[in-house]
Design a binder for these strands. Structure first.
Length: 514
RNA sequence: GGCGGCGUAGCUCAGUUGGUAAGAGCACACGGCUCAUAAUCGUGGGGUCGCGGGUUCGAGUCCCGCCGCCGCUACCA
């Protein structure tokens, strides 16, 4: 039964260009979204940029431009990067947009009206780069920030505080009633641990800067950047301005987020939603990090890789395949160029690409270039491949359903291998043209048809290409919504036969590790 | 300090509530095939499951200790 699926990524902070770590999260979200479209869910996929805060103001200053100019420029780099990688986001939300201002103000006003905000003062050592206060004992010598190792500054501010401490109980209850809300389970335990250990009220406004969203009832203040940023998830779906649209997508959301921001997403944000009188987000998917040499890849490290360049190098599909196949959502993984090329060669070139090539060639020589349909053996038996395909399709569905697309891909490749093995066993290139050769070729073509649909969330361009080479160009797209749904086309026997099969250039030319 | 995680074949990792000889992919070796992108198919070698104790008829799987690595630590995207 088709449902609704709203997918988000964290919105990225615009003090630098996108790197592979941000691309990883966005690619995962893209793949999940594409899968849900494929099974017929009504799907909405949003990413965007986070553009407020002192750090951005200073970045703009040091680059000699206005804050507005700076965020426009930097945000567009994200827009362009996702476009270059061929991602399928339906919307791109920026926190400097009017629609976001309105939603934040409506949302925060509701929390205020519900009595969960109060005025207090906050002072302490403040790291501008972190936009965070630190306890003195956490500082390095000479009062330096432990993250950036730069000197902190003593700030005193009158702030509005959110009474987070009042929500521990309700959060615990909610998570108790929704055991599947956080994936994977270890992250759920971590979030519960945070809640159990006691929550402190948090200051959510700043008066020291004006680059932010004004507090409606106290315009000297702007909202603290996190409090503004999290709201993007609902401002993107019309909170405060389009009630029907908001109701349609909320709370059927799947927030994808990094394990470093669990506190904000799994504690603050649900509490904020409760305080404002809306449901907490239904699903929080916590991903791991891409590591380089055992260290997190990130903008503060030197180990950045430009995802767009990498996509141009190996192809967007191959890059996405590597990211989704080699890294289980929820786990860290070691990123290497060699690993990427290894995956490319063994899975994409040798197994998938080569299967299509060899089948196309033999269809050309033994079936006059016209693809035969899958059919029964002369002895009346159905192909072993039919059985394998059915099992694999089920496994793929199940794997995506529990946020393990890497397992779905692994299963898909079992089917591809089985098709290669079946070809070896029958060796149609040795047979005279006829029913026996046609049968195995039809089976192989049918496998390729099914595979095209199954891989389309990760290899969308490749899926289309396979589709057209199988002669199916006239019959829609392998990625058409619902193709993997209950009324979909994944049952064995869908390849019609009688259509021209074209060989074409290698789908994935082998590459050497340089 | 506190909380949590990790350490399984050369590499990347699977291993449900402890029990049919410790697995997969890649890499490697041998053999087959030659339709295919020197691709593919089959077979095989290889692991004291970080270390040391303990519980048990039986532990990679539970308990204790140790070693190594890594996160989070309450206003960093």
């Amino acid at each position: 039964m088709p449902g609704r699926y709203y997918q988000t990524t964290p919105i990225y902070y615009v003090n630098d260009a996108p790197h592979l770590g941000t691309a990883y999260a966005t690619v995962c979200a893209d793949a999940l979204s594409r899968w849900h479209r494929l099974i017929g869910d009504e799907t909405w996929f949003v990413t965007g940029t986070d553009e407020h805060g002192l750090k951005i103001l200073r970045a703009a200053e040091s680059n000699g431009v206005s804050a507005r100019e700076w965020v426009d420029r930097t945000s567009s780099r994200f827009v362009e990067a996702w476009k270059a990688l061929g991602l399928s986001n339906d919307d791109f939300i920026r926190t400097t947009e009017e629609r976001h201002f309105r939603s934040v103000q409506t949302f925060m006003q509701a929390i205020y009206d519900n009595g969960h905000l109060y005025k207090g003062t906050y002072e302490g050592w403040y790291c501008v780069s972190c936009e965070a206060y630190y306890n003195e004992e956490d500082l390095l010598d000479h009062n330096r920030c432990p993250v950036h190792e730069k000197p902190v500054e003593w700030f005193t501010e009158e702030n509005w505080f959110f009474a987070l401490s009042k929500f521990g109980e309700r959060l615990s209850e909610w998570y108790g009633a929704h055991p599947g809300a956080i994936f994977p389970e270890t992250r759920r335990n971590e979030a519960l641990g945070i809640i159990r250990s006691g929550l402190k009220d948090i200051s959510i406004t700043r008066t020291s800067i004006s680059w932010g969203i004004p507090v409606p009832w106290d315009p000297e203040h702007v909202f603290y950047v996190w409090y503004d940023a999290l709201v993007n998830y609902i401002s993107a779906i019309g909170f405060g301005s389009d009630h029907d649209r908001f109701e349609k997508w909320w709370p059927a959301v799947h927030h994808l987020l990094g394990k470093d921001i669990i506190r904000f997403h799994c504690v603050w944000w649900p509490a904020m939603c409760m305080a404002a009188g809306i449901d907490p987000p239904a699903h929080l998917l916590v991903h791991g990090f891409l590591l380089v040499g055992g260290r997190k890849m990130g903008k503060t490290a030197f180990n950045q890789v430009d995802p767009v360049e990498l996509g141009e190098d190996v192809g967007n599909d191959a890059l996405r395949y590597y990211l989704v196949r080699d890294f289980a959502i929820g786990h860290d993984g070691e990123f290497t160029y060699e690993g990427l090329i290894e995956r490319y060669n063994s899975d994409l070139a040798n197994n998938l690409g080569n299967l299509l090539a060899r089948v196309a060639t033999v269809v050309g020589s033994k079936a006059a270039g016209i693809g035969p349909p899958p059919q029964r053996r002369p002895d009346g038996s159905a192909s072993r491949l039919a059985e394998t395909a059915a099992a694999v399709v089920g496994e793929v569905r199940e794997a995506w359903g529990r946020f393990a697309p890497h397992e779905g891909l692994e299963a898909t490749w079992r089917l591809i291998r089985a098709a290669n093995a079946e070809l070896e066993a029958v060796a149609p290139w040795k047979l005279d043209p006829g029913p026996e050769a046609d049968a195995v070729l039809g089976d192989a073509l049918e496998v390729l048809r099914i595979v095209a649909v199954l891989v389309s969330p990760v290899l969308p361009d490749t899926a289309e290409e396979i589709w057209s080479r199988l002669g199916l160009g006239g019959s829609g797209s392998p990625a058409a919504p619902g193709n993997a749904g209950p009324e979909g086309i994944l049952d064995w026997g869908g390849y019609p036969g009688g259509v021209p099969v074209t060989k074409g250039r290698p789908l994935f030319p082998r590459r050497s590790v340089e």
